[in-house]
Design a protein around this nucleic acid. Structure first.
Lengths: 235, 235
DNA sequence: ATTGTATATTTCCAAATGGAACTTGTTTAT
DNA sequence: ATAAACAAGTTCCATTTGGAAATATACAAT
């Protein structure tokens, strides 16, 4: 997935963690070789597409060459009719991989497990369903994660009297401590990512992404099997 | 994943597509209930963080309420100190899930398999390593995908005489046909996503994301095990 | 030349994944 | 009020995943 598995997508991520650990090895300190990991949401490419998308390709420091990116990654970033979605996935992965890898090493929690923790850190007393819909993980994966976290004493699960099907989830003191201890890593990393932009640019970016998110409620969650009657090898 | 899994989360993906299929069921036609899938790259949250990130929360139509998003997704989108990365993963997943699900149904190809196809569609004659580094999928996963695609006659793999370790990958005629037939779906979906923005906004968004991508070569691919000497339960 | 290190790819295998079926509980419709 | 439909959560199980070791080749250094 991830992902976001990037794919998210995810699905990345993903992407899924989709997209787990060691494939992104930028030894920034030893300063030697850099390998860029990436995952989940690939986007197809071809340098001949509607002007509106191509208008953007290659600009903005789109490093015509030498920039620490290998040729294929550079092509996907700068010569891609789907520039938006590849960049979304690329940036998501550059964030997801190091952080969830750190969570795994530091706390021994998998991605779905940590997602439960921070979802409750944000909104305590939610249901597994809420975490599923906001995270994209399937319910059975979350069910297992929740069982493990209950066993670890990080969360508690109590049946809702109003609707006995529902289990209300809450962080325990230990769970909240983990959340509050780990959160700064995530915030700091994002702030580091944003250092490339000034304050106005950050606000602009936030506003533009918010516009897309708001519009996303109108996007289909599924694409029709084969809506144009081209020859299809299926069926 | 998924996610990017959001993706994956992932799921994406989410998201690894991370983050595969049926959890995103927006019946936009039958017009009834909407469930938003998301995965892979979760980001922790807390409504008290450096001003620079909070400056953006809640603005831009950040739907103070009723907008088709459930409460937890809304909280993650609009009250999240890591607004950037959650939105990245969220948007990546809203793209990855329907499209890779469509690829699966239409061509019977998994995400890594399709990623090989379109990577070569973009840059033919590449190595498995190039696809790995630009996609984030581990090499063994791609190795299996490549084997299957060779068996299907979609790609051909020839040893490089200059360096016998390397296998140069190329699309066959069938592989290229699949690429060219499927590409418009990806392009069209991205264009639909961009309909929320006018031409200037698209260029601005592209430029801002490009800035982040360029800066990303300086981001660490791994976070130090425990750099602050807080009490740690590890070891 | 020869040993040691690095790289491209594949294989192995334990673990995670997720679709589908199942259980339990709630709502809707007749 | 009774049946059908729906929803939350769990369990089953075949498949996929990805870390690690293995293989084969290339390059570097003594």
């Amino acid at each position: 997935m991830e992902l976001v598995y990037l794919t998210m997508i995810g699905h990345s991520d993903a992407v899924k963690s989709i997209l787990k650990s060691g494939f992104l090895e930028m030894r920034s300190r030893q300063g030697r070789r850099v390998r860029d990991g990436f995952a989940s949401g690939e986007t197809p490419d071809r340098p001949n597409v509607a002007a509106s998308s191509l208008a953007c390709v290659g600009e903005a420091g789109g490093p015509s060459s030498a920039s620490g990116l290998d040729a294929m990654t550079a092509a996907k970033l700068w010569e891609n009719p789907c520039w938006l979605t590849y960049r979304l996935n690329y940036l998501a992965l550059r964030y997801n991989v190091p952080l969830y890898n750190w969570v795994e090493r530091t706390y021994g929690l998998s991605r779905p497990e940590y997602v439960v923790i921070y979802s409750l850190g944000l909104k305590d007393g939610a249901l597994a369903r809420d975490i599923a819909s906001s995270s994209g993980f399937p319910q059975n994966t979350l069910s297992r994660a929740i069982q493990k976290l209950v066993g670890l004493g990080m969360i508690e699960r109590t049946a809702d009297d109003a609707d006995r099907r529902c289990n209300v989830l809450r962080l325990t003191k230990e769970g909240r401590a983990l959340f509050e201890q780990s959160l700064p890593r995530f915030v700091d990393f994002e702030q580091m990512m944003l250092e490339a932009l000034d304050e106005d640019e950050r606000k602009t970016l936030s506003a533009l992404m918010a516009k897309l998110v708001v519009a996303s409620t109108g996007w289909p969650g599924r694409i029709d099997p084969e809506e144009n009657s081209q020859e299809k090898s299926e069926r």
